[in-house]
């Protein structure tokens, strides 16, 4: 087997990990399994694509539309990503306001909120399909050549960038959650929301912060996946099971756990493609999920189920 499988797995795993972090945060703070999270990735990718469509012409007019250094995209993409992340955040906050927040206020059971997220995810995905059609779209048309990176492995500059961006974002988020006052409040709400109120924490504000972080990371993950593969309305749906499996494998609520879980799933998928065949790739996450539930339902860094 070629060592290439390692780097392929890590690259896919970085995207899954980044998406799973958002999922694990909303899971532990809002306390429900959010089936719309995959669609946030897809929406983030499409929103970024749309903005970059507008920006592209503008930047080309200014003469800075050319690809940056070794990468396949110009300054338009990072700028569009910022705008796309902002729009994705707005989308999740609206969804929380009109749907999840309403159900929370009525004291609806967790499972009702899960069901609402399931219905919303179908609707969100189909709206994307209606607006953009089911045809795949691309953030860049540039071709990239994979460079040797040692140990017989090759990767394109874009691929290496996604790994670096993931590492940077996860480190930053980890510091925020463990060191800052906002992070402290988030951990407190995840342990006991009603006690958090007694301590003087505005739980609604913490929930909004959680959506902001989750949606922002989802957008970055969606754009990374769109950059390396392609953008389709169903991309988020196809990633949803790997995201859940990664979050549960890492232990719900654990940020390093979600990243590690994502990398493990990515690697397992890459090995499956090599050994068993590409057509079984989508089943890997299910096998991992079942194994975790049998062996260690709390996950690698989990506290309680």
């Amino acid at each position: 087997m070629s060592p290439q499988v390692l780097i392929d797995g890590l690259i896919a795993g970085a995207t899954i990990g980044l998406g799973a972090i958002g999922l694990t945060l909303t899971y532990s703070i809002l306390r429900f399994a959010n089936f719309t999270h995959g669609d946030f990735l897809a929406w983030g990718a499409y929103l970024t694509l749309t903005v970059s469509g507008f920006l592209g012409g503008l930047l080309a007019g200014l003469g800075i539309g050319e690809p940056i250094g070794p990468f396949s995209f110009g300054w338009g993409l990072p700028l569009s990503l910022l705008a796309g992340a902002g729009l994705t955040i707005v989308l999740t906050l609206i969804l929380d306001k009109i749907l999840f927040g309403q159900l929370r206020r009525r004291g609806a059971d967790t499972i009702i909120i899960v069901m609402a997220s399931f219905g919303a995810s179908m609707a969100l995905r189909s709206v994307l399909e209606f607006i953009y059609t089911a045809n795949p779209q691309y953030l860049t048309r540039e071709l990239q050549i994979a460079q040797p990176v040692g140990f017989g492995m090759r990767a394109t500059p874009d691929q290496l960038l996604t790994i670096a961006v993931t590492a940077l974002l996860v480190l930053a988020l980890h510091l925020v959650v463990t060191r800052s006052s906002t992070g402290r409040s988030m951990r407190a709400v995840s342990e006991n929301p009603s006690l958090a109120g007694v301590y003087g924490i505005d739980v609604q504000r913490v929930i909004r912060v959680t959506w902001v972080i989750g949606a922002g990371l989802a957008c970055v993950a969606g754009v990374m996946s769109g950059l390396l593969v392609q953008i389709r309305p169903y991309m988020g749906f196809d990633l949803l099971l790997p995201l859940f499996a990664a979050a549960i494998l890492g232990g719900v609520g654990s940020i390093p756990g979600a990243l590690l879980g994502g990398l493990i799933i990515g690697l397992a998928e890459a090995f499956t493609v090599q050994i068993v065949g590409a057509e079984w790739r989508a089943g890997v996450a299910f096998v991992v999920l079942v194994l975790v539930l049998i062996i260690r339902p709390t996950g690698l860094f989990g506290r309680t189920v």
């Binding site: 402290r184 951990r187 407190a188 342990e191 006991n192 009603s194 006690l195 958090a196 109120g197 007694v198 301590y199 003087g200 924490i201 505005d202 739980v203 506290r303």
Partner: peptide, 23 residues
């Protein structure tokens, strides 16, 4: 809401689960 009451100076100590054990 309770967080706003805490800000206004109404302290409350619940009977059980009154600290964050994981902090």
């Amino acid at each position: 809401p309770s967080y706003a009451l805490a800000k206004r100076g109404l302290g409350f100590v619940p009977q059980t689960e009154n600290i964050f054990a994981q902090l």
